[in-house]
Simulated scan of single mutants.
Amino acid sequence: MGDDSVSTIRGTFATREAAERAIEHLVQEHGIDRSDVFVAAADAANTAGAAASERETARAENSGLDAALRGRIAVSADVSRSQIARAEQAFREAGAADVETG
């Protein structure tokens, strides 16, 4: 999306599960194209989040695998101006911190 009617919403998440939940809501409930949603480590280090979710903790205990928890996960999405309020709500309901639109 590259026009003036589009804004980028950003938020950070403590767990990968929370970030995935926000993305799922944006795409499935609000019709935002998945190619307009971006996920990255919030800082320079690669990370699976700042904390493990209950599901991730159980998975690690059962498999012996442990993901690197080095920081928060950043999610951003290019959304139409008419979708900003719903996108912000989806981010917050999923547990986002530092939600901003620009």
Rank of each mutant, 00 (worst) to 15 (best):
A22C: 02
Q28F: 03
E29D: 13
R21D: 14
R16W: 08
G49W: 02
R34A: 12
D33Q: 06
R34C: 03
S35W: 10
R21Y: 07
R16T: 09
A18S: 15
Q28S: 10
I32L: 13
A18M: 12
T47F: 02
D33M: 03
Q28C: 01
A51W: 09
V37W: 01
E20I: 07
A19G: 09
A22R: 01
H30K: 11
A19W: 02
A52E: 12
T15W: 01
A40P: 02
A41W: 05
A44Q: 10
E17R: 14
L26K: 03
H30I: 07
A45T: 08
T15R: 08
A19P: 00
S35Y: 08
A22H: 01
A50G: 14
A52C: 06
A41M: 02
A41E: 02
L26F: 03
A40E: 13
T15L: 05
A40F: 04
A52D: 11
D43P: 04
Q28E: 12
I23F: 02
A44R: 14
R16H: 09
T47H: 08
A40M: 10
Q28A: 09
A41H: 03
G31H: 08
T47D: 06
D43Y: 07
D36F: 06
T47G: 04
Q28D: 10
V27A: 06
H30L: 15
A18I: 01
A44V: 13
I32R: 06
F38G: 05
L26R: 03
A44I: 11
A22N: 02
A41L: 06
